[in-house]
């Protein structure tokens, strides 16, 4: 564990807490893509199957359980108590392509053809693209609540910091994983436009609005 990864994990955890805070305070899930949230649940479940086979640390176990359970809880919130505030028509991304595409990539690039290893690779590629339905929704509406942009910023910053962590690990441990690194770079690149508007508008106290 290094400082970059610790801060990244805390940003990831923080992003989820911000999203829950948005839902609780506004009693609304407007502006949030259900598809992206559902993809994250699939990502966490397929990646953390090793909860049952491989103990890393109390920290690691706690975070895995938190990510899976909070993702499930967010879906429940969007489907049950906040159902009326969800706009299906804005959440129009064809996510079948992401589910299928990640499957093809996992079968091609997995390190080993075992169930756990292939599902781990699947989760990496699915996470790489999971934000796309959310970004499409943002593009369609052209604007977002400030709290939603803080959520997205924390989520993007988490993967960006993981890149710094991988560089650090390469330097100190000579450890490198091509799959997570390449996917992580693509995932972070998807946030570029968002980061630009976030830095130039939201952090200056203005509303998030696409040009």
């Amino acid at each position: 564990m290094n400082i970059f990864r610790l801060v990244a994990d805390l940003m990831h955890l923080g992003s989820i807490l911000i999203l829950l805070l948005k839902m609780f305070t506004s009693r609304s899930c407007a502006g949030i893509s259900f598809k992206t949230q559902a993809l994250y649940l699939i990502v966490f479940v397929t990646r953390y199957l090793d909860l049952f086979t491989h103990f890393v640390s109390v920290y690691n176990t706690f975070m895995k359980i938190f990510f899976i359970s909070s993702a499930g809880y967010i879906l429940y919130m969007m489907r049950v108590p906040l159902k009326d505030t969800y706009n299906k028509h804005l959440d129009a991304f064809r996510w079948e392509f992401l589910l299928g595409g990640a499957g093809v990539l996992a079968l091609v690039f997995t390190h080993k053809y075992t169930v756990i290893e292939t599902l781990w690779t699947y989760s990496i590629f699915l996470e790489m693209m999971a934000i796309l339905p959310q970004l499409l929704q943002l593009q369609r509406t052209g604007e977002a609540e400030t709290i939603t942009t803080h959520y997205l910023f924390a989520l993007g910053a988490y993967r960006a910091l993981y890149i710094v962590n991988w560089i650090y690990r390469y330097e100190t441990e000579h450890h490198v994983d091509a799959i997570s690194t390449m996917a992580g770079i693509v995932q972070t690149a998807l946030y570029c436009d968002f980061f630009y508007v976030y830095f130039t508008r939201v952090l200056k106290g203005k509303r998030f609005k696409l040009p």
Binding site: H54, R169, S180
Partner: peptide, 10 residues
């Protein structure tokens, strides 16, 4: 080892 090192990440 190589693979365990990857899997310690979240």
């Amino acid at each position: 080892e190589e693979e365990d090192a990857v899997k310690d990440e979240l």
